[in-house]
Amino acid sequence: MSGNTLCGPCLVEPPQHDGIAAGTLYTETSRKLVLALKHGGRIAIAPMLARLIAARLPASSTSQLIVPVPLHRRRLWSRGYNQAALLGRELARLGHGDLLVDALIRTKPTPSLGGLGKQARTKALAGAIAVRSSIKDRIAGSEVILIDDVLTSGATSSACVAALKQAGASRVTIACFARVLDEALDTARAIRAS
């Protein structure tokens, strides 16, 4: 979904979110950047990735809240940082809203979602994400930018959007560095094969 246009899947199953702003498509190059940030400790690339996201964000006349997709505390402790929070911090520096780094919490650990299909991801995330009770008043009536590094099946972002809307968010736009689109991946595979 972009602007006032809906993609085919969104026509079939309307999303809860109010739009997606992706810096780029998920390709071999963007994958390397995501992995460098997420697992390689290359946090210095966060400003560059955030600028690419910021270029795709729609203008808003109201103050927005920037809310990163949360990590479970065990994963946060082992990684040492939340890559979505780093991107959110940079979006706040660029003037896109106020960062609420701990607005969402993972109430239970979830397995790594890589390699899981959409249904398995949705099942793994059931009941795993909530709005922190002390933040609910700030969320109610607010426009929210939900930030993550990659949008894959949408299961994680859908769980986050549902929690934010349940807490009273008026709009939730998903912002990510890279977006996985099956048709783009199919085209890339065909090009590599030829």
Rank of each mutant, 00 (worst) to 15 (best):
K165L: 04
A159Y: 12
A169F: 05
S158E: 15
I135A: 05
V144W: 02
A167K: 14
K165R: 14
R138N: 11
I135V: 15
L146D: 02
S157V: 12
S153V: 00
D149R: 02
Q166R: 15
S153I: 00
T156A: 08
L146V: 01
V150P: 04
R138H: 12
R138P: 02
S153L: 04
I147N: 00
I139D: 04
S142I: 09
I147M: 13
S142D: 07
A162Q: 15
A163N: 10
I139C: 01
A155H: 04
A167N: 13
A140P: 00
Q166V: 10
K136T: 11
S157P: 02
V161I: 09
C160I: 03
A167W: 07
T152E: 05
L164W: 11
A163E: 09
A163L: 08
L146C: 07
D148G: 09
Q166H: 14
K165T: 04
V150Y: 01
A162I: 01
A155P: 09
G154R: 13
V161R: 10
A162G: 14
L146E: 00
R138S: 13
C160E: 11
A162D: 14
I147L: 14
I145N: 01
I135F: 03
L164F: 07
S158T: 08
T152N: 09
G154L: 08
D149S: 08
K136A: 12
S157W: 00
A163D: 07
E143P: 05
A159K: 10
D149L: 09
I145H: 02
L164R: 03
S157M: 13
I139Y: 07
G168T: 11
D149A: 11
D137I: 00
S158M: 08
L151M: 12
K165S: 02
A162K: 15
A140W: 07
G141W: 09
G168Q: 14
I145K: 05
A159L: 09
E143H: 15
V161P: 11
E143C: 11
A169K: 08
T156S: 12
A162M: 11
K136C: 07
R138M: 12
V161T: 12
S158N: 15
V144M: 03
I147W: 04
A162H: 14
V144K: 02
K165I: 01
T156V: 01
C160P: 06
I147H: 03
A167G: 10
L146G: 01
A169I: 09
V144C: 07
S142C: 08
A162V: 00
I139H: 09
G141R: 13
V150M: 03
G168N: 13
L151D: 03
I145D: 04
D148Y: 04
D149G: 08
A159S: 15
E143V: 07
A155F: 00
A163V: 03
L164H: 08
D148S: 11
L151S: 05
